[in-house]
Design a protein around this nucleic acid. Structure first.
Lengths: 332, 332
DNA sequence: TTGTAGGCGTTATCAC
DNA sequence: GTGATAACGCCTACAA
């Protein structure tokens, strides 16, 4: 592979000049510029990004940490990041942490040793302090997590409002007896969603019934089990709100297994607007989690702070929107 | 950030020695080794991967090109790649091509200029010749594509056999009148699947009826439209095979809209075993595309050829498996 | 506008 | 076993 040196020889100029036309940051006469360009062309020259990085102390890459590479949430976030980054001619190095503290830490260390210009982290297993110390070493933005002392570099969804919207949608369609299957309580996301649910109830004069609550873990089977548990209680309900779409799907399956007709006998709302939400039957009404936009915004923060792209508006918390489909029956 | 030089000073040894203990490739006395290790520890030294790459001409990274970052197929392939790579202490640089020739090419060029040690490409828009020439420059493995002259570096699924299995499952459950909604014919995948469908029919003495065929494009809506078109024909059918799960889902929606009860009035098989297949109602019987395994195998080829990991068995074509769920009714 | 030369942080080839 | 020292390919003052 040709180097800048060979190009300079062929073009009859110096190394520096070749470098200049590559980065067109300094004045180069049109004549020499084309000479150099031609030389590059005939040699099939491609700059060595590694060498550029070492010399310039900039890799034009941002390191990303996600839990898994598959799955709707991460997929859309990565999409948001990559699309935005590509437009800026930067690229993405992806690592996975599998929600394990040790793996997450080693992934982060790795990204740092790769000299990424910045980091975008989706992590729930690493402590705040660690993240704070990291962010002193390298520009870091956190998605779907809030850490007080670096809040201007955190992107998150207003989950409380999302939970509120979901339950409110049920109420506005005439439902008064509403069950809830929650995600794990230690996750702020699911905790906040539950809070929103409760606020919606309260605001509409409906008292919260512990018998209509089931603690799931965001996986489909706990939606299934949850529904079965809930129906064992003496309290009946016409609607069910779930902490996420997976559990909503599980609940739908359980309901159907019990012979219910959906949404005739039971209305359901999910949360996330996961890829498969529209594939469910009936198509699931849910709350969009703005995954793509959060990824995009995380990138924008970096574009602005690290790569000095101006006129970029930043917002740190996204307001969720209800996505209406066919899983809620209108009660008269 | 501390450099190897500072470490050598603190430890009272030379640069070379520090380098040796890092890569423990040469003999170093236990005494000096611990001296160096201690120095690294107290300095919080992290090797600069960029500098290592420049000097060693090895980046320990493999470049990956996919169409999109979201979506089940790519997600699982990337998962397969990343998991395998991480075990080998290598990492992944991901680019997207959006099924556009220019974008795919520029992504590939980019990966090359980043000096990736090898490439894993999922591409359908770039011509064979280009891929062949690329593979002369840098070790390359192609997933989900077959190029004759570099076939030993191609990983693919036996789509014909998959199509065969899907239709055979229908037939074995007593179905004789089987419609088919195909993916775009210019994609070998969907073409092969259709061939398999036809072979299954033929093998069981069922003649192929062009009236029972609809040409879709792998998107859900063409499954929807396809089903509606098929029911306009005079020929009736009790079962439907689809070129992929998306179209199967579309067909299910159309069928239900026409008032059919699934799988009572219509049996359906899909293809891919997409993430949402088990979320459909009824849960979709389909053919698994081995995405994860193909990603893993692509990585294995590289691990073996580039990173000299031995005792790795390579196989280039994967045999699909039927995933039985509840979308096929048994005809008596 | 263009050229010279030092430096980026390692690896690797020599000697000793 | 250990230490100089030249690469690696490019950037960037500083000079000219």
């Amino acid at each position: 592979m040709a180097t800048i040196y060979e190009v300079s020889e062929l073009a009859g100029v110096s190394l520096a000049t070749v470098s200049r036309v590559m980065n067109n940051n300094a004045k180069v006469s049109e004549k020499t510029r084309t000479k150099v360009l031609d030389a590059m062309e005939t040699l099939g020259y491609r700059p060595n990004a590694i060498a550029q990085s070492l010399a310039s102390n900039r890799t034009n890459s941002v390191g990303v940490l996600v839990s898994e590479l598959h799955g709707g949430f991460f997929g859309f976030i990565m999409d948001g990041i990559e699309n935005e980054l590509r437009l800026a001619n930067k690229h993405i190095i992806i690592t996975t942490g599998h929600s394990d503290e040790a793996q997450e830490k080693s992934a982060i260390e790795f990204l740092i040793s790769r000299k990424c210009d910045a980091l975008i982290l989706l992590t729930d297993s690493v402590p705040d302090d660690y993240l704070i110390s990291i962010s002193k070493t390298i520009p870091t933005v956190l998605v779907n997590r809030k850490v007080e002392r670096i809040s201007e570099n955190c992107i998150s969804l207003n989950n409380e409002q999302g939970g509120y919207l979901a339950t409110k949608a049920l109420i506005e369609n005439g439902h008064k007896h509403i069950a809830y299957i929650a995600g794990p309580d230690w996750k702020v996301d699911s905790h906040d969603r539950l809070l929103g649910h409760q606020r919606a109830l309260k605001e509409h004069g409906i008292s919260y019934q512990p018998e209509l609550f089931f603690q799931g873990d965001f996986n489909e089977d706990t939606g299934f089990d949850g529904f079965n548990e809930l129906t064992k209680a003496k309290l009946t309900f016409t609607a069910l709100a779930c902490g996420n779409d997976e559990m909503a799907s599980g609940a739908m399956k359980a309901a159907r297994k019990q012979g219910l007709d959906l949404p005739q006998d039971l209305s359901i709302v999910g949360f996330d607007n996961n890829m498969f939400a529209s594939y469910l039957y009936p198509e699931l009404t849910t709350v969009d989690n703005s995954a793509y936009l959060m990824g995009k915004m995380a990138t924008d923060i970096i574009l602005k702070s690290v790569y000095k792209q101006d006129d970029i508006a930043i917002k740190n918390v996204f307001e969720p929107k209800l996505v209406k489909r066919n899983s809620i029956k209108v009660l008269s």
